[in-house]
């Protein structure tokens, strides 16, 4: 079954307007859509991230589902404990980690790996804005090559970790990438993950206008261009089998880069280099798509 806009409109979701999120926040957009698919029978565990602040200050909260804030490295472990407790109580509840990229690919990777290896029945979501945005734009293990951050003032020199593939290597039943520029694809991946038992992982490309210095109104467009330029391919790995879920006509990477000041000042050679990396990744995914099992 494929979700339509009408299906999404039926469910109120767990985000209430008037939060502390920045205008045009991709993480909020992702949560709005995801929570509509997950429904109210869901508990969220959130490590330190922008999303800790987006909830807004005590004693109010912009989130209308049960949500527990936990220390930075610990989200996947805490979610494991929540799930096991509900199991003992005979309750069937969606247990979801909602984490940023720092809390996922850096400080949270150990707990995430442990929970994935144990096959905890939880959904781990990384909304990826490609840097430590809550602390004010410092590079993370998810920051792309050559991107400006406050701790990489002349551009990041290293490749980001390929986190979805790292999780997939744990042979979990479901791993997917998503983008706030492709909300139906995103919604359908949550719909699928919700029904699968075991450890699920969804990694969402999530625009951050203040962190990327992109126009506030272009949150969706930047995230769509990320996919259309093959910078952020959309795929899923279900029981080891990879499928590219969106195969757009390739657009020049330049169109994506030019919308964000974090890539300002790249030389022609650097853009070419990035274009080459993007195509290599895309071709590799096409190759993986042909094999019976990736992992």
């Amino acid at each position: 079954m494929t979700l339509t806009i009408h299906d999404l409109r039926k469910e109120p979701g767990s985000y209430l307007p008037g939060s502390a999120a920045c205008p045009g926040c991709g993480a909020t957009l992702a949560f709005r859509i995801a929570s509509r698919v997950l429904g109210p029978n869901t508990v969220y565990v959130v490590p330190a991230s922008c999303f800790s602040v987006i909830q807004s200050p005590f004693p109010k909260s912009a989130i209308s589902a049960p949500l527990y804030n936990i220390a930075f490295p610990a989200a996947a472990a805490t979610a494991s404990g929540v799930y096991r407790a509900y199991k003992m109580l005979g309750k069937d509840v969606n247990v979801v980690v909602w984490a940023g990229d720092g809390g996922t690919v850096d400080i949270g990777i150990q707990a995430l790996s442990g929970a994935a290896e144990r096959g905890e029945n939880i959904l781990y979501v990384c909304y990826d804005n490609e840097a430590y945005m809550n602390t004010g734009i410092q590079r993370s293990g998810a920051t792309p090559l050559l991107a400006w951050t406050k701790t990489t003032p002349s551009g990041k020199r290293e490749m980001p970790k390929d986190m979805p593939m790292i999780v997939a290597a744990h042979r979990v039943p479901y791993v997917a990438t998503a983008s706030v520029g492709y909300p139906f694809d995103l919604a359908n991946k949550f719909e699928k993950a919700k029904k699968i038992k075991g450890f699920k992982y969804i990694h969402i490309f999530s625009t951050c206008p203040p962190g990327w210095n992109s126009p506030v109104s272009k949150t969706a467009e930047v995230a769509k261009l990320a996919v259309d330029t093959y910078f952020w391919p959309l795929y899923e790995i279900e029981n080891g089998k990879l499928r590219i879920t969106v195969k757009p006509k390739k657009r020049p990477l330049r169109e994506f880069l030019e919308l964000q000041d974090r890539f300002r000042g790249l030389t022609e050679r650097e853009i070419e280099e990035l274009e080459k990396i993007v195509m290599e990744k895309w071709n590799f995914l096409l190759h993986l798509e042909k094999s019976e099992r990736v992992f």
Binding site: L16, G18, A20, Q55, K60, S61
Partner: peptide, 17 residues
């Protein structure tokens, strides 16, 4: 305990922004 209740406008009337 730091228990917060779901509320519209948890960060105020953000329309003012």
């Amino acid at each position: 305990v730091p228990v917060s209740k779901p509320s519209k406008g948890a960060a105020g009337k953000t329309g003012l922004w």
